Computed example of a mutant assay.
Amino acid sequence: MRVLVSGGGTGGHIYPAVSLVKYIKKKHPDAEFIYVGTKKGLESKIIPDQNIPFETIEIQGFKRSLSPSNFKTVYLFLKSISDAKKIIKKFQPDIVIGTGGYVCGSVVYAAHKLNIPTVIHEQNSVAGVTNKFLARYVDKIGICFSDVASDFPKEKVVMVGNPRAQEVAGIQKSPVLNEYGLDPDTPTVLIFGGSRGALAINNVLLDSLSSFKDKPYQVLYASGEIYFDEVKKKWQSLGEELDNVKVVPYIKNMEHVLANVDVVVGRAGATSLAEITSLGLPSILIPSPNVTNDHQTKNAQSLVNKNAAIMVKNAELTKETLLSSIDQVMLNPNVKEQMKEASKNEGIQDATDRLYRLIVELTS
């Protein structure tokens, strides 16, 4: 089996693709892969580290306002289709899979024009611009949220879930919190704003740190690299009185940490929600306001509607709303257990297998 995967821009597009590649490798050890991305995108750092052959094309997104750069965008899009065709003809894939981001628009469209089976994967509850464009050309569309089905041709849509969920779901409890100076047997809240952090969450956390002093739970807080020095200075100024709070810039082994905490506080990106629900974790979600079509709010609302999460809007995020939301879950065992069960019911733990079966169907 020869598989070409494309997706880029954010981890939410890249990590599901990596999970899928890993799964197919287990099923077909002799399978061959190539990942097509951009030189500047996050995929250029993540994919080579995964030992997946990596090729690049040049492309950029449209500006929403009238801008001369949009002429360059059109030129690059047309050129990128030609470049993608060259890569496809050389690699001769059995199937081409797009997981979102501008780069996969050119690649998947080029594959369609070369009569190669195609699948796109939509992680969010609102379809991305690229996937909306590709919907008319691809053979199948895998989705994670039922709400997004209406954005695509009904006959092409298949509910598969997020491959990242299946990878995380199998992780067992461990003493990993020891690595962060925390007690694995103490109830734990994980707070983070994504891989780069979130300014609004950090500002509120700086005001809230001392309030955790006498809580019967501990806090692991990932601030993001660019905010770490400021947060660390504030945290250290509180001295030993705050030994139940640990601050780190970034958590590399996030999936293992997630498997060992009780509640997650953070943004509502699709991959994060897939990980959270696969483990049946209650969550307090603070959707980012800086995303296309406010899709994180819609992502979060899907869990709120099932009583699996509490949503605090970014504009309403204060020390008081944050602490009261955390206490609402952590200090009420019945609430925490009910949210845990609801979250678990929303998780799709065999997502990668579902997407794999779709691929097999198209390549048989």
Rank of each mutant, 00 (worst) to 15 (best):
P117D: 13
P16K: 04
S195Q: 05
K40G: 01
S210N: 14
G266V: 06
I120G: 04
A149E: 14
V5L: 03
E337F: 00
A315W: 03
Y250W: 12
I326W: 03
K79H: 02
L323T: 09
E346M: 15
G161T: 02
L182G: 06
V176R: 03
E230M: 11
K319P: 05
D262Y: 00
A200G: 06
I141P: 06
E167S: 11
N332Q: 09
K232L: 13
L317H: 05
I88T: 13
V168C: 07
F91P: 10
P249S: 12
Q338A: 08
N334W: 02
T73F: 00
E167P: 07
S125E: 11
A111F: 02
A351Y: 00
P163V: 04
A169D: 13
M159S: 07
K132Y: 04
K313P: 03
F91L: 12
S208F: 02
F62P: 07
S210M: 14
K22S: 14
N203E: 15
P175I: 10
A127K: 11
E55Q: 03
S302P: 01
Y23D: 14
I47C: 05
A17T: 08
I310Q: 07
S364Y: 07
N345D: 13
K27L: 11
F91G: 13
R357H: 13
G181Q: 08
I87S: 02
K132L: 12
T277E: 10
H28I: 15
N178Q: 12
K340D: 06
F71W: 09
L20M: 13
I88E: 11
N178G: 00
S67C: 06
Q50A: 10
P93Y: 03
L177W: 08
G12Y: 04
S364L: 09
D327Y: 01
I95P: 09
A169G: 12
L355R: 06
D243R: 09
K154P: 09
V74G: 09
L78W: 02
L279G: 10
V5F: 01
V158G: 08
T118S: 08
L42H: 03
V108M: 09
L258A: 12
V245D: 09
E275G: 03
Y75Q: 14
S343V: 10
G12M: 01
I59R: 10
K72A: 04
N51V: 08
S343R: 06
F62V: 13
H112D: 14
A135T: 14
H295L: 04
R354C: 06
D139H: 05
K89P: 02
V248P: 05
T186K: 15
R354V: 06
I276F: 03
S6C: 08
A84H: 08
L4I: 08
I201G: 02
D243I: 06
V21D: 13
V21I: 15
K85R: 12
N244A: 01
G197T: 14
Q236E: 15
I57W: 05
H256T: 15
P333S: 11
S208Y: 04
K90G: 00
G41R: 06
K340C: 02
N299D: 10
E241W: 00
M311F: 01
S272Q: 12
V148F: 03
S65F: 00
M330S: 10
K215N: 12
S19F: 00
L199D: 12
V138Y: 02
C144S: 15
V265C: 01
Q50L: 05
K63H: 13
G8L: 03
N293R: 11
N334E: 15
